[in-house]
């Protein structure tokens, strides 16, 4: 009954390389989603945390003179764009954790012993998974902020938001996966996530415009990737979508919508090329 053949007859295997790769990617992605469905707490926490921010922070500054906030009718409305981006950013920053646990528990060895048609499948499945849940979380924030009366973007605005978030999520996911293969264990990865998360939020235009900040912080905020994602989304909420508009009055000059997206795109590609040799070495 138990038999071993010199090699598995061809008809018992998936046909070509592409099919094989799709088979392994979908199986690996499915595994991550089963984990999510059976352990939904991280997903829920990822939605709840920014929601609490939205409620508390918006309430905290509800009496602030809104004339200071360019184009916004309330602080909650100003804050919404920042929190949408922050949610996606936090979600993507956690991308490395499942991979790190697979390394630590030896599950990765199971994958590495298997004749995967490409080891990129391991990375691609993580990216698909993290992108999906980050976007889900961000859309939950958008829906809530709409319910709170902070508005909803037009269709074009929605598309712009989706593209912006995708670029940011790809970049940060790549970074986190890279860290997951470099750091010795999950403690270190979590420590980095903790250290990076909030300061990056504060040093962006999520909570306040650059004009509020001292010059040094203004500099940091205007090179912070989060800012380049927040401002196009803020525009999508307030104005008609026009990427020629100046979105950031940075100390080094004005930045328009196209430049924001271009910078995010370059960041994503740059991180990809930076991390690729590292992953190749670790997964070779």
């Amino acid at each position: 009954m138990i038999t071993t053949n010199p090699s598995i007859p061809k008809e018992k295997q998936s046909r070509n390389d592409l099919n094989q790769m799709l088979q392994e990617i979908s199986a690996l992605t499915w595994r991550l989603f089963i984990q999510l469905i059976r352990r939904p707490s991280t997903l829920l926490a990822g939605i709840l945390q920014p929601l609490i921010w939205l409620l508390l922070f918006a309430a905290l500054f509800s009496n602030a003179p809104i004339d200071f906030l360019p184009g916004s009718s309330s602080y909650g409305e100003f804050l919404g764009a920042g929190l949408i981006v922050f949610t996606a950013f936090s979600g993507a920053l956690n991308a490395g954790l499942p991979v790190m646990f697979d390394r630590e528990f030896g599950f990765l060895n199971r994958l590495l012993v298997a004749p995967l048609s490409s080891r990129s499948s391991i990375i691609i499945s993580s990216v698909i998974y993290i992108t999906t849940i980050s976007l889900l979380q961000s859309f939950a924030i958008m829906a809530t902020s709409a319910l709170l009366g902070y508005g909803w973007p037009s269709l074009g605005g929605f598309l712009l938001i989706a593209i912006t978030l995708l670029l940011l999520v790809f970049a940060i996911t790549g970074l986190s996966l890279g860290l997951a293969f470099v750091l010795p264990g999950h403690i270190e990865l979590i420590a980095i996530i903790f250290i990076v998360n909030l300061p990056v939020l504060f040093a962006s235009t999520a909570l306040a415009p650059i004009s509020f900040m001292p010059e040094w912080l203004g500099w940091i905020a205007s090179i912070n990737p989060l800012t380049f994602a927040i401002e196009p989304i803020r525009m999508a909420y307030h104005n008609s979508v026009d990427l020629n508009l100046i979105l950031i009055n940075a100390p080094y000059g004005d930045v328009n919508g196209y430049s924001c997206l271009a910078i995010l795109f370059i960041l994503t590609i740059g991180l990809f090329f930076l991390i690729r040799p590292l992953l190749n070495r670790k997964l070779a």
């Binding site: 598995i8 008809e11 018992k12 295997q13 998936s14 099919n19 094989q20 088979q23 392994e24 979908s26 199986a27 690996l28 499915w30 595994r31 199971r110 994958l111 298997a114 004749p115 995967l116 048609s117």
Partner: peptide
């Protein structure tokens, strides 16, 4: 099942 997919079984 996951293992079977990693080995590309039909």
């Amino acid at each position: 099942q996951l293992q079977g997919d990693l080995y590309h079984l039909d």
